[in-house]
């Protein structure tokens, strides 16, 4: 199946098709009749396998936020072309992202520096706790995105490493 959503760290492959009176969710071996009807007041009625319930949905870019059964969830859409292109490059370790919102205390490296795996790259502060961010692999720093004192959100790109060359990729 072509598309996927990510919930926390888990990726779920799925497909959506149109049926006679709604849609079908294709997930794993299951084909589930589903439908979603948005009312004027912004709430929606979600029907899965014939059972309906009220949900509230909001989207922003690739993120879908859903309130369902008294709890809120966030799903991030992954377009098939993005996923398949990313697989080809294996770029997960090129970008160092913020584990939580906060501000930059100090950067120990600058663009062009050569670093080894585990080396301290920078120190961030959040909720009066200081955390040191280390390099996920050997490489060369491409850019440091923030200066001391600046604030950022969770998942913000803090440091990018240059793409690993085939020789440097090792195994």
């Amino acid at each position: 199946m072509h598309h996927a959503f990510k919930i926390d760290k888990n990726e779920y492959d799925l497909g959506l098709s149109r049926s006679e009176d709604g849609y079908r969710l294709h997930f794993g071996d299951a084909t589930v009749p589903v439908n979603l009807h948005v009312e004027d007041d912004g709430t929606a009625v979600l029907t899965v396998n014939g059972r309906s319930e009220r949900v509230v949905i909001a989207t922003r870019g690739d993120d879908v936020f859903i309130h369902l059964g008294g709890a809120a969830y966030q799903l991030r859409y992954e377009h098939p072309l993005d996923r398949l292109a990313a697989q080809a490059q294996g770029g997960a370790e090129d970008n160092v992202r913020a584990p939580m919102p906060g501000s930059l205390v100090a950067a120990h490296v600058k663009a062009g520096d050569s670093v080894v795996r585990g080396q301290a790259l920078l120190v961030i502060e959040s909720m009066k706790m200081e955390t040191t961010i280390a390099a996920p692999r050997d490489g060369i720093v491409q850019a440091v995105q923030f200066t001391a004192g600046q604030t950022f959100d969770r998942d913000a790109l803090l440091i990018s490493l240059q793409a690993a060359t085939p020789e440097a990729a090792g195994e």
Partner: peptide
Amino acid sequence: ASSEEEAIAI
């Protein structure tokens, strides 16, 4: 495309 899957997706 770097794989058959990617080619078909394209």
